[in-house]
Amino acid sequence: MTLVDGFDPSGVRVGIVGLGGIGHHHAERLESLGADLVGGMDVDAGARERFVHEFDAHAFEDAGELYDMVDAVLLTTPNRFHEEYAVSALEWGLDVLLEKPLAHTLESAERIADAAREADGICMVGFNNRFAAPVEVLKHYQGEGRFGDVRHVEANYVRRRGVPGRGSWFTTKDVSGGGSLIDIGVHAIDLALYFLDFPDVVEVSGVARSEFGGRDDYTYIDMWGDDSGPEDFDVDDSVSAFIRTADGATVSLEAAWATNRPENNDFFVRGTEAGAHFDRGSGDLTLFENGVGGGHHLTDTDVDTRDIDTHRAEQAAFLQAVETGEAPTRNTVEQALTVQRVIDGIYRCTETGRAVRLDE
């Protein structure tokens, strides 16, 4: 028996919908937690066979057969299919952990949110960076008032070269809903708004660009997945944006699959009393403070934390919510819907060349 925060997750029967790479990633962590991984579902026969071989669990082509055997499901399908499986699982009475983003379009995301509001079960969305140990510490200090009022967050999720396999669903807009913005920019937006305690967003301004993935001479060292060439790339590969909230707080965003600059995973949290720097890549956390005791001075404090598997911690929070029946206050569907509205606003801003109001 594995105890997680004082409870035994083996009593929760879990299934996974979508048995690709991220599905296997989640399955491995569910097993490490001691959860009862009953089975999985995928439309691809090869994916089902690999899942059965690796995890000694059932695998189905029909989602309903899986739903009948479980208490909760993790949904790890390509974005376009989130709505189909999330809504059906919620209507079945199951609890759902849905990988980010909420959906491939805002309209689809809103339908998932509607289903979640009507459902008896809980629904969480997979923004795993919130569970990083430095983020937990930063939020603890923020809750104590150490930063004062947080007024601005600089959010970066930038790869120098990191376009997923050209020709995969990641680079196909009809399935993914977009490129770097909806794939990794979504994490940066969510984490920035989390540091601001999710205020109402009133305006976004930005540009999503496609400058590298569609080129014959796109240069890279490694590529996740196969490269089918530029003909199979119709999404953005970088984005710059500015987000303004109802209480005057702001977010500046840089995200990229590919750009001619060094990799950057820095988040700067700027408060009226103190600030912080979190490097999402390395996990480094530094606090920036000041004082007058003994003379005016500035203090930089490096914070060491344990190395946490963020997906495993996220799953533990989900399983505990399933076990207790208490809806989580973190990683909620409503928060994910706010992130989706920001993404949609940036894409609309790119098309019109004008800032987009989200409060009208």
Rank of each mutant, 00 (worst) to 15 (best):
D232S: 10
I221V: 13
F278V: 14
G229E: 02
Y220I: 04
L193H: 03
D226S: 15
H297C: 07
A313R: 14
L196S: 03
F267S: 05
P230K: 14
G325K: 11
D197M: 00
V202M: 08
T329I: 09
R215M: 06
T329N: 08
G271Y: 05
G294E: 02
G206H: 01
V269S: 01
A241E: 10
G271D: 04
T301A: 12
V303K: 11
V235I: 07
D307E: 12
V186G: 00
I221P: 01
A188N: 07
R215W: 02
E211T: 10
L287K: 00
N265V: 02
F267M: 05
R270I: 13
P262T: 01
S252P: 01
T272Q: 12
V235H: 01
Y220A: 00
E254L: 15
L253E: 00
T250E: 11
F267R: 05
R280L: 07
A276V: 07
W257G: 00
V251K: 03
T286I: 13
G295H: 03
L285K: 03
H311L: 15
F198E: 07
A255F: 01
G295R: 01
L196E: 08
Q320Y: 08
E323N: 10
E326R: 14
T272F: 11
D237H: 07
Q315W: 12
F212H: 15
G214S: 11
G281P: 02
V303C: 10
T329M: 08
L287S: 01
G275F: 05
S238H: 15
F242Y: 10
W224Y: 13
E263N: 14
I308F: 07
V239S: 07
N265K: 12
F288P: 04
R215E: 14
F268L: 13
G206M: 07
G225C: 03
F198H: 12
Q320C: 06
V235D: 04
D300I: 06
L285I: 04
D227E: 06
E254R: 13
G293L: 11
P262A: 05
E289N: 13
R312I: 02
T310V: 15
V186C: 09
E211N: 15
V235F: 02
D266I: 11
F267I: 09
R261H: 06
Y218K: 06
A256F: 10
Q315Y: 11
V201Q: 09
D226I: 08
A188Q: 03
R270E: 09
F212R: 07
H296S: 14
P328L: 07
D227G: 03
D266M: 05
S282W: 06
D307G: 10
G229K: 08
A317H: 14
F268M: 08
A274K: 02
A258F: 06
